[in-house]
Design a protein around this nucleic acid. Structure first.
Ligand SMILES: [Zn+2]
Ligand SMILES: [Zn+2]
Ligand SMILES: [Zn+2]
Ligand SMILES: [Zn+2]
Lengths: 160, 160
DNA sequence: GCTATTAATGTTATACTATAACATACTATA
DNA sequence: TATAGTATGTTATAGTATAACATTAATAGC
């Protein structure tokens, strides 16, 4: 269960490990993990939070990289298509994957106060919609599962 | 299980029944189901498909109703807030509710070919994310559950 | 090495989605 | 009828995403 994003952890190590896995997976799949793509992933990895494309562009600009919208969107397309990042549909924003290397159909827990996002792989996620789909004769290709609410920290803060 | 939207059915009756329920629910809850709001719901009810706000605006214009963006967005806000319609986050589009009158946390089956959308209430949907949320200490307020894929008709068509 | 082919980036312009802000009109209540 | 609250009309603008085309870089076959 990879919802530890909400918990205190060694985030430098968390970033390093993710980058290493993505580099390895890219080699194995013969993908071009180019500098721009790497930079965008690094920007996403900085925080366990979803970033809008234009927020990413600002950070690219700060790094002296060309920062027209297609630059960010192309890199994000690459990252999402290859499973290194996900789009949070409810926010029109993007986040680095925290379940790298395994095939997974993720669910996201999104805090409406602090915008933190935790990715998890619920036990029964593959089977969850299968009954419904079967009944309807529908063929599922991919799923969007997002829960909005309050993270542990913001629950404590809003009580206090 | 309300995934019959994919199946042939008496859609005139389907629309009439929905409108009737919404009128009744609005009265009970003392909501103002005004002409504009009614017109927007009628537009949504025409098809079992999600419509973008600007698509709705065009249809409003055709009906001689003022058609600046806020007109559609306000009516949609009303309908969504009161459970008469839903937003499909994966499409930035809106669809009439087909499980009117009951509290529900819907899941949507969205065809990527013909754009048909079926709303369903999976058996275990309330409990589905609870384990995950519990583990993470997360408080769920609402959920977005959408499956993209192929409806029965488009599966047959793409084989043929 | 050279060349054809494909993949990635740079750049401009534009399309699509959504809301802020303020004026006006309607509705319910006192 | 005064008042407060809700809904609508309208203009302008913010935020998200892609089309289109030029240029450069990487790969593969000769
Ligand atoms: Zn981390
Ligand atoms: Zn939070
Ligand atoms: Zn119908
Ligand atoms: Zn279809």
């Amino acid at each position: 269960m990879e919802t530890l994003s909400f918990e205190k952890h060694d985030h430098r190590a968390c970033i390093a490990k993710s980058l290493e896995i993505v580099v390895r997976c890219s080699k194995e799949a013969e993908l071009q993990f180019t500098p721009t793509r790497k930079k965008v992933l690094e920007i996403l990895l900085e925080e366990h939070r979803a970033l809008g494309a234009y927020e990413i562009l600002e950070k690219l600009r700060a790094d002296g990289i060309s920062s027209q919208p297609p630059v960010a969107y192309r890199a994000l397309d690459f990252l999402v298509k290859n499973g290194f990042a996900h789009k949070i549909e409810g926010l029109n924003a993007f986040i680095a994957c925290t379940i790298l290397g395994k095939a997974h159909s993720p669910a996201f827990l999104i805090c409406r106060m602090c915008a933190a996002v935790a990715e998890s792989q619920p036990e029964n996620s593959r089977e969850y919609l299968d009954d419904t789909a079967q009944n309807a004769g529908f063929l599922i290709e991919n799923t969007v599962i997002e829960a909005q609410g309050l993270c542990p920290k913001c629950q404590r803060d809003s009580v206090g």
